[in-house]
Structures are given as structure tokens and as C-alpha cells.
Nucleic acid binder design. Structure first.
Lengths: 348, 348
DNA sequence: TTTAGCACTCTCGTCTTGAGAGTGCTAAAT
DNA sequence: ATTTAGCACTCTCAAGACGAGAGTGCTAAA
């Protein structure tokens, strides 16, 4: 695969870069003009032909300029842009924006997803950090006078779970409060497994609530995503490959429904590695809906403690050179945030 | 204004109905065919001319069919569809969908906004119910070992506020816990004003936290919206008036940013009336961005206790006959939800 | 190995043209 | 006094014609 000459590599990158910017097929002449090379257009044409035969470029029709194939993008990404870093001014801008408002995780996520959308000019998505083995901190039970009870469970590290539950038989606020007190004494500081291992005498009400509570504490691992935040759908919408295309719009719909995201983010869970940026070009055969699209994904957080995922979605013709470092940088930023709030590290 | 003959009213409704369905200018002949009236096309033309002079219809160009003007839509809405109710099967479907999963407010909102989007074929938005004068229930302070502290405040009624705060000087978890205990004793069951009126002796730490806490309890009234939920952007995207139009896309962007929503929902706060459906056609002069669009809005909840807002956004050519009753019905449904959880009423 | 030259192909914008839909008006019919 | 038939007129829209332009592949010379 790596039998490309230096000049072929150069021309490949130039074609990819130009096409990413203009969305127009790139001709041999155009390249000379834009990057004023001192070779002739015929030479470029010959090299282009070689690259076409290697499957890295193709022509929309027989006498048009070249556009990259999926493999072309892949080559470009792995050989040229993957290791690049974000320029310092950009890092500074993002950091500045990011540390503007810090109130709660919710708002932080909103901010992060919006920053990511703006810098990538694509649709961005983030899942809230999810504690992997969280331990119990405090329980609050709030009666609503019927059999409906609001349960608020606070975990160490600050995650808050809420659930409305219906009791088998009505209970007064006093009963609920004493049950909560009891459970708070028994469970405090323990993980779900630890609580399970040390059986304790308790009444029906307490037992019922404990069951639900433990369910909540562990079920988070199943869905593998706290909350899903989504922004910048309209960015990708203004890309030429998305106007006027019906199936592109269907893809967008699947995105908005979050069902595609689930599958996508599941991929990042598998590898488990935090801070590694994955690039999915054209769905890679796995995702029919993403044929024309690309996704840049990463996991953030502290493995084994609390992690989340983030990513960027756009046309295959997205700016990898900008988006890969951006995703990486945001992942680092969010990892820092997690370690501050979970471990109490000082901000840098 | 009401000097329209019965036949003119009929023809107006038929034009509006047909245009809403087809997005094509409606000709005199087309109306005869579709609704087989037993009058001639010339008669229809005469009536159409009268309606054009009354400012209810207009022609895109001199020899085309008619389309409704903003006033035309307004007449149609106020005279014909405003009082209609949702057909029973639809109500049943929605109710069924709505009561499928009930876990916490968060999920309920997600479900509601998605149902609304699907039934309206438009973009839908809902704000979480916000307690208007909430009283204190429980405070939890979680140290992260630095000067950063996570504050979790639970209000009566079940609203949960989270905030990360930075202390002037470091405090241990023990200090934080005792501060929280103290504040819990002092504040429990009281509203922000009541707490303010009864000054109590307390140390610096407690005083600082109390200030922040009271700020949180009252600031909710300012922004007038708990959380904002948005869905169905892609619905309005597939409408013909939105493909290929740049300023339509800009409007959509403003929508995604939630800034337009703020202004829009502020309108519903003013009137305060719960369950009244408001229809905003073409921005009504107030909203430049909504020139081609319409919005159907309502407030839900229990006035003086807890309320939220919901609405639907789409092209001016949206199906009012479906969306107005749908918004009304969803408002009722959500009001019921609020009264269940806040007042403890049994579900219907 | 590179480059100049050339014939060839394909797209795209512009222009023309004709069909079709719809109107407004006038005069006849009810 | 309405309603309707008839008609001339206007405007859009789809289809075809056509030339400019961009880009290619190939061959032969440098």
C-alpha cells in the first residue's frame, strides 16, 4: 500500500485539501495554480492516473477532475493529519470559552457540545460522564401524597439520579423519611456490590426501595451513556451534499432520534481506551446510513472511574485536519473536568 | 371584516386546506375537481377575486393560482379550526404513548417532545415544569477535595438543582457536612423569602452557601424555563419552503441555539394563562426571523405552583387543524402530569 | 522521465420554444 | 342580479439546442 512516491503523496493531499474546501472536483491545472508547483499539468495528470488506479481518487464522470475515494480519505487521515495538534491560539480560544460558565454538569455539557459544534462546523455529540462503579452518597424520598414517590439518589462524585416510583401501598412522608434515613446509614460510601454483599435486616418498604436503587446504580452501565447532548445539526445541513438529498435527510433524522448515536458510541465503549481518536469514514461498511458521511469519535474521562464519549459528524468531505485535533483536545479538556470533579484535582 | 358570504368562507377554507397539503398555488378549476362543487370555475374565480381584494388570498404571479396571505391563515384559524378537538383515536394513541415509560422528569420530557414532533410533523419544543415558589427540602454538599464543591439542592415537589461552586478557602468534607446539616435544619420547608426574613446566626461557610442557594432558588424565575427540549428539526427541514433557502436555514440555526425559543416562550409567560393555545402566524411583525413560519404555543401546569411551556414550529403552511388541537391536548396531558407529581393526585 | 500539443468528452449555463395552466373580462343565459 | 361560457392574454415550466469551458488521455518530442 505504501508504494506511493513522495510526489504522489503530495498530490493526493493537495487534491483532498482542495476538494474539502471547495466541494468541486479537482483538475490538474487547478492544483498547479493554487499551490504553484513547478511541474507541468501533464505530469500531475499522470500521477493522478496512478492514484486513480491505486483506488485513492476517482472521477465523477469521464472528463472531470478528481475527487478522493473513501480509501483516499483514509490514506490522507492516517498518513498526514492524524498526529497533528491544534494550533495554540485555537486551543486558547476553546479553553477560554470552556471555562467561562461553570455551574453544573448539565450546563457544562451544553457548553461543550456547542463549542465543539462551532469549531468543527459539523454536528457534534457528547454523552455526560458516567461513573463506572459509583458509590452511594445520599438518598432523598419525596412523597407526592399518592402512591407516587420521587426518589433522588446522589452518588459520590456528584452524579444525581432521579426516578418516580409507584409503591405497592401508600406511605406517609414520615415513613419515607425514616426509610431514607435508614438506607442512608446502611449504604453510605458503598458501591452496589458492597451493599448487596452485606445483607441487613429491613422492612418491606426499605427493601423495595433498595432494590430499585441498586437497579439504578448498576443500570447506567447497560445503556453506557448518561445523557446525550447534540448540537450543530444545522451546520451539516448547509453542506452541499445535504441539501436536496432525501436519504441524507433521513440520516439526519436518525441522528436526531439518537438511535444512530447509540450504535456509534457503543463502538467507543468496546475499545475502552480514553483519548484515542477514532475516525469512521463512509460508515466503513458497518453503517449503511453513513455512506456519504464521516464521524470522528473519542472517549474521555478516567478509565474505570467515570467516562463519556464525544464526537463530530459531517459529510465525508469534512475538515479532518481541524476536527481530529479538535475532538482530541475537547476530550482532554473534558477528561480534566472529570478528574477535577471526581478526584478533586485542582484545575491547571 | 366578517362581511364574507358563506360561499366565500367555504372557498377560503378549501384553498387553505389544499395549499397546506400540496404547497402548490390553488386554481379555480382544481377546487372544483377536488371537492366536486356544483358551481362553475368562473364563479369560483369571481369569489377568489373578492377574497384577494379582502387581503385573504394572493397570487405569486399574475396568472397563477391563489395562496393564502397571513391574514388568510389567521381568518382560517380563528373561524374554523381553533375550537376543534383531536379525534378520539388520536387522543388514545398519544395517551398510550405518553404513559409508556415513566421514570423521571427528564425522560418524560424527552418522550413528550418526541411525541409532539411526530404528531405535528413539525419541530417541537417543551420546557420542563418549573416550580414558581418552591420551598427548600434538602441540601447536599459534596467535596471534591480542592476548593471545588458540588452542591445538590432538592426542592419540595422534586425539582433538583446542581451547581459546582468554588469556596474562598478549602473546607473538609466534615465541615461541609455539618454546614449542610445546619442549613437543612434552618431552611427545611421554607421558601426563599421566608428564609430571608428569619435571619439566623451562622458561620462564614454556611453564610456563603446560603447566599448561593437562595440565588438558585429564585433565579429560576428569571430565565423562566427549566430545561429546554427540542425535537423534530428535521421534520420542518423536509418542507419545500426550507430546502434551498439560506435564511430559512439561518432561522433553523437560531432555533437550535435556543435563543429564539427564549423570546418566544417569554410571550407565553406574560399572559400566564394555562391551557390557552396561542398561534403566531408569520411572526406577527414581532419576529423578523419567523416571516415564513408559524408557531403554536401553550402554557401547561398549575398557575402559581409550577408551569412550563410547549409549542410547535413549522412553515406558515403547517396543518393548524392538526397542530392546534395536538398542542392543546399535550398541554392538558402535561398539566395532568404536573398535578400528579406536585399535588399527588392519582393518574386519571 | 517530463512536457507540449491535440483531439475528444462531458458538463453547465443560456437561450428558445411550445405546451399548459390560470386568469380577467365580456357577453349571453338563467 | 347572478351565474356561466367563451376567449384572449399572461406567465411558468420542461425540454431541446448549442456553444463555451474545463478536463482528460494519448502521442510524440525534449
Amino acid at each position: 500500500m505504501d508504494e506511493l512516491t513522495e510526489r504522489q503523496k503530495l498530490i493526493l493531499t493537495l487534491v483532498v485539501r482542495d476538494y474539502i474546501e471547495t466541494a468541486q472536483p479537482v483538475g490538474s491545472r487547478r492544483i498547479l495554480e493554487r499551490f504553484n508547483l513547478d511541474i507541468s499539468s501533464a505530469t500531475v495528470r499522470n500521477e493522478m492516473m496512478a492514484l486513480s488506479e491505486a483506488g485513492l481518487l476517482r472521477q465523477p464522470h469521464s472528463s472531470a477532475g478528481r475527487i478522493p475515494t473513501e480509501d483516499g480519505y483514509r490514506y490522507f487521515v492516517t498518513h498526514f493529519v492524524y498526529q497533528t495538534d491544534l494550533p495554540e491560539p485555537t486551543r486558547h480560544t476553546i479553553t477560554h470559552q470552556f471555562y467561562q460558565a461553570r455551574q453544573d454538569v448539565e450546563q457544562w455539557m451544553h457548553l461543550a457540545v456547542s463549542i465543539l459544534a462551532n469549531h468543527s462546523h459539523a454536528a457534534s455529540l457528547i454523552t455526560a460522564p458516567h461513573a463506572e462503579r459509583a458509590s452511594y452518597k445520599h438518598l432523598e424520598l419525596i412523597s407526592t401524597q399518592g402512591r407516587q414517590v420521587l426518589m433522588v439518589l446522589v452518588l459520590v462524585g456528584g452524579e444525581v439520579l432521579q426516578q418516580i416510583l409507584t409503591l405497592a401501598e401508600p406511605a406517609s412522608q414520615e415513613q419515607l423519611s425514616s426509610a431514607a434515613d435508614r438506607l442512608n446509614q446502611i449504604c453510605i460510601g458503598r458501591t452496589a456490590e458492597e451493599i448487596l454483599k452485606s445483607p441487613t435486616q429491613m422492612n418491606n418498604l426499605e427493601q423495595d426501595i433498595l432494590t430499585l436503587l441498586l437497579g439504578d446504580m448498576t443500570s447506567g452501565d447497560q445503556r453506557a451513556s448518561g445523557q446525550m447532548y447534540l448540537d450543530g445539526l444545522t451546520n451539516v445541513l448547509s453542506e452541499p451534499e445535504f441539501v436536496e438529498s432525501t436519504d441524507a435527510r433521513r440520516t439526519l433524522r436518525r441522528f436526531e432520534e439518537r438511535s444512530l448515536l447509540q450504535d456509534l458510541l457503543a463502538r467507543t465503549t468496546g475499545s475502552g481506551a480514553v483519548g484515542i481518536v477514532q475516525v469512521l469514514i463512509g460508515g466503513e461498511g458497518e453503517f449503511e446510513e453513513l455512506k456519504q458521511c464521516s464521524v470522528v469519535l473519542a472517549r474521555y474521562g478516567i478509565p474505570g472511574i467515570a467516562t463519556g464519549a464525544l464526537g463530530v459528524f459531517g459529510p465525508m468531505r469534512m475538515s479532518y485536519a481541524r476536527n481530529i485535533p479538535t475532538v482530541r483536545f475537547m476530550a482532554d479538556l473534558l477528561s480534566g473536568l472529570v478528574s477535577e470533579t471526581m478526584l478533586g484535582d485542582e484545575p491547571r
